[in-house]
Amino acid sequence: MSEAATPVLRSQRVQRRARAALGICAAIAVLAFYPFILPRALNFGVSLVLFAALATAWDLIGGWAGQLSLGHAAFVGLGAYTFTLLQRAQVPMWLALLAAVAACVLLAAVWGFITFRLRGAYFALASIAVAEVLRIVSNNWSSLTGGPEGVSLQDLPPLFGLDLYDRRVEFYLGLALLFVALMSALYVAGSRAGFYLEAIREDQDSAMALGVNPLRVKLVAFCASAALTSLGGCLYGIYLSFFEPQGVYALDLSIQLVLMSIVGGMGTITGPALGALVLLAFQEGFRNLLQQRSLLIYGIVIVLVVRYAPDGLSGRVLRLYRRLWPWPSRSPSAS
């Protein structure tokens, strides 16, 4: 009947992953022309690739491992602040980037170690608390962070002779990050680690009985997600070039990443990136209508998606598509 009923051969799986990798490369290549086709909409382009990358990074822990993080803004903010503050202290850029990633991975390791040992909603509960503590500290520790007035990142040295405040440069940096994030998702989708994650998500007890160490596997996925998100945070800091605790640690930001993933389909390779496209295009198209209402509409979308399309819109659309045009039963040699 369906594809899943027939056993998938290893060679087929490899072939499928190769096709997916090719598809991702093609999509990235097409996106690379964006600054030439739409030079006037570069702001949209940068936020598109950046948020697509962030949502894909979120999905590593949220979708594949099924650990709902409502505090990924913690990594965006910590990454952006670490990078900016070190940059202002005249630390070389590569070192500042490395420090930002290291800080976020350390945070993820501690936070994950505390909460992944426990069953139930503790991880999600703690996630809000972690982001909130960081926000409060950044707000109050004015001598370090500039407090609620925020901090600006004004004079970045050029990177390889390129001006980092040029939106085109930022776009290609974001595109590179998106590529790395998608490749990580692709790796997870077909690797042993990915199967471990899915096994834990579906049934932790059975996974443990089969010799999977849930704490370790979840920690690795979480640290990877944190590292990618912190890089996104650094880029977000450069893109904004001025930000405040309220903006980078906001629950809204975390929710936005979650929403992109669930709209596009959690635990899929390209779902979160597609979700980012849909959501940002929607925001852009209805900017006048939205204004203060965007979070209200997010709330309604979350409720509707969870209620009627729990496997995401892409899953919904895919099933509809398959019903209308059923899969031709392909033999491995035909493709």
Partner: peptide, 21 residues
């Protein structure tokens, strides 16, 4: 479990932003 959490998160967003409006 994450669906249930998301549902209540969505309800919370609807409530707080309705109050805002």
């Amino acid at each position: 479990e994450h669906s249930l959490i998301l549902m209540t998160v969505g309800v919370g967003l609807i409530l707080s932003n309705s109050l805002l409006l």
